[in-house]
Design a protein around this nucleic acid. Sequence first.
DNA 1: TAAAGGATAATA
DNA 2: ATTATCCTTTAT
Length: 186
Amino acid sequence: MKRYKKLPRTFYARDTAQVARDLLGKQLVHIVDGVERRVRIVEVEAYIGAHDLASHSSKGITPRTAIMYGPPGFAYVYLIYGMHHCMNVVTEQEGHGAAVLLRAVEPLDHIDGNTRGPGLLCRAMAIDKRMNGHDLLSDDLFIAEPDEPEKFSIVASPRIGVAYAGEWAEMHLRFYIEGNSFISRK
DNA sequence: TAAAGGATAATA
DNA sequence: ATTATCCTTTAT
């Protein structure tokens, strides 16, 4: 198996928007049955915390959102619209209720199908709600530094699918790699 | 552009 | 127990 430079817990325990930006270009790895699925993160969204109306955590702590209120560096996976999974990464200190949603990735290894969209990337990565609460410092699902540092520009825009969130829908908390052809929308 | 689909959380 | 809602995708 390849040697990875996993991101430390301290990486996630920072300002959510900052973590979101820093996640771009990183590699998400999911190893299942010896198959090493690997992708490059190209598009993310930040969900700042309980005061962010677009975030699930704005409803307070529920059985579902409890993961978001837990310690950073864990996966928050949920089912949306009854048929698709979305994966988030918990950020900030325990109790804050913030996370970064992975919206699109670029296939690197052992990936079939489309990865441009939260539901599609989870399908391609074989991630479902059984991965909810999974530690991203584990050996089968984690995020690592790329082999070589890359240079790219980051674009910020409003988040997708959160029109119900009032003024929070307008905030530029979606980030993606400029010019990358694997982002979910323009 | 609208339907699908299932879990979740609020209401009762 | 019932209902409204949802960080989307796919097919018409």
